[in-house]
Design a protein around this nucleic acid. Structure first.
Lengths: 201, 201, 201, 201
DNA sequence: TATGAATGAGTCTTCATTCAT
DNA sequence: CATGAATGAAGACTCATTCAT
């Protein structure tokens, strides 16, 4: 159960490299990212990179993989744990905003990838879709229970993802003040207004 | 006033190069885009590129410049021409969707740039912002006229831009069927539901 | 029919590169050969190599290909043109010795390859074998005509190739004086003594 | 006189490394041979190599040294022990063929070196030459005793070495069947035929 | 003006060697 | 002694840019 000293160092190195790679790839994209720079940022020699990753491509994928897996999992956890639809929407927007604040670089990379994800039907594209589809399912259910207006659930779920993404981007650009909670509240309120049934006359 | 044959050829070349560059940069990004490939796609020799553009960077900027200018202008025209707020929103989403369908490559590039635009406060960032702000102004006015709920106009305008962008992306991925008009109608309806005042009891 | 100036330059470059590559690969072998060095030796920039050859491997193969093809062809021509067996043997040894003197580097490379040729049954291995087998056929014929002793033709043909190779190597090492003609005469005499029928008693 | 356990282990290691190095260098040549691979093949860690050999070069030389010394010694022993010239020639070819079969890798390496040996007048070149010169001396003697035709002894001795080498190579390539004894008999017979005096008429 | 061959700076990758454990 | 992680020099290859024709 206990990790050897070796393993601890290796784990630390690995994650230092991933951090450095995330930063550099976010700055310059995949093609523009320079391994020398990543090594320097990670505080190791260039050759050491190759002890941990087979090459540039694998390193890039490792970053995406790790971060998307994390984002997907934390989003799913929070959304599924929420009881009501409104809470689920709030949870979705909040966890994304928090993630965006904490890991700006990753969000940059993911944004760059958005299109590529579209093209090649990779595992990543599933990881992006899955949380949105949980939201969609909750919406569909709420519709069928007559809780909200009759809206196309999947479309709406993607709309939620879209406005959340936009909000994160503007925060990353520094063009948005306020806490993530306030932002999440606003977004949830906006969406909810669009879903709510008009009060009976 | 009349263009010489020289000028006609030059204009034609220039735009052939821009088209080729748009295609290639969309496929591979800026760093990954190869001038050889662009020249080939444009049907000219590599050296000729340098007669029309100072270098890779300038060529890239020229593409962005041209296309963003166009997009900005057509969006402004249509939004400003619309009379009511609902019509303005419909106009915004529609013109964007049309553009997205017609010029997928440019949209891919713009998506990649979104972040960079954020960082360097360039002219582009203004061109992205301007149409959104026209929308925001219209929303603010509608609020002050009591036509719609009291919402933060700028935030809502960006939300509209965000869901439109998402819709375009999903269309480009082939994950969305239907005409652009239907899509625009849906988006407008969704937003409008969020803005509408509850009918008085 | 006439070559353009471009083609002349290209041909010249190509053969300058081949010459440089032959020299360098002979000095250091394939793995040890440095492209930078080849480029310098050829008087061109490193990048230019890649305009003429796809990469290190292809360049190496091009050298082998060109030189083995030449050696094979000139050996075949001279051997086949000779009338008697003795003349064929003399022709074989002479043409090889001449080639060895003229193109020492190539002989070094071919020697290094000898083993590889053995392993992978490539085209090269055929090119090495073919001239030897012409010799073998002539020997077999002479045997059947009762002109020489009854010897295993193919073995003897290879023996001739072997002693010729050895002679060339020692010449390249500078350990052998005399003209190639004298050397050829000696070798032919040696072999012929082994083949000759004892004069009838 | 007795070896300590330490020394026994060290000797064992050393020879395991030499075996591994022989295999790898034979496969890939000096420049292409990878120390990692040698270490793995020898079942030790890469760093351990440096406890036994100063570096790649020294390791390579150690292989050559050991194997050439052995080959030289066994050839000299057998050739010098033989009584008549014909027996000496038979001994030479046989011991070489046996060695070639038993240690193919070394023969590959020696073949690669042949040329380098030529260039740098090293100790190796003496080790190659010495056995051949014993043969040459025996030939010269036989000539002076009138036992065989008047031939240039040194040349003939090298010819014998050459055809033996060629025979080994073809055996290593699998292109030759039969026992080493048969091969040796054939070679000896061939050479002897070239040396024999024509029976008086 | 148009061309495309030539250039060489910039990158990725490998691997001999070192050294802390 | 033994290990194998870390290093960085060296080398293959790419591609933006230049320039002679």
């Amino acid at each position: 159960m206990k990790k050897t000293k070796q393993e601890i160092v290796a784990d630390y190195r690995r994650s230092a490299i991933l951090d450095a790679a995330r930063t550099v790839f976010a700055r310059r994209g995949f093609a523009g990212g320079i391994l020398d720079e990543i090594a320097q940022e990670a505080g190791i020699a260039k050759g050491t990179l190759y002890l941990y990753f087979k090459g540039k491509e694998e390193l890039y994928k490792a970053v995406l993989d790790h971060d998307m897996r994390t984002l997907r999992q934390s989003t799913l956890n929070r959304v599924d744990a929420a009881a009501t639809l409104r809470e689920k929407i709030a949870a979705f927007t909040l966890v994304r905003l928090q993630n965006g604040d904490a890991r700006r670089e990753f969000f940059r990379i993911m944004d760059q990838e958005q299109q590529n994800l579209t093209m090649t039907r990779t595992q990543y594209s599933d990881w992006v879709r899955e949380p949105v589809e949980h939201l969609a399912a909750a919406i569909a259910e709420a519709v069928s229970r007559g809780e909200i207006r009759d809206v196309p659930a999947e479309k709406v779920a993607w709309n939620i993802a879209d406005i959340t993404r936009g909000a994160i981007q503007r925060r990353l650009m520094g063009r948005s003040s306020g806490t993530v909670e306030e932002e999440s509240d606003y977004l949830t309120g906006f969406v909810w207004a669009a879903l709510e049934k008009s009060p009976a006359p």
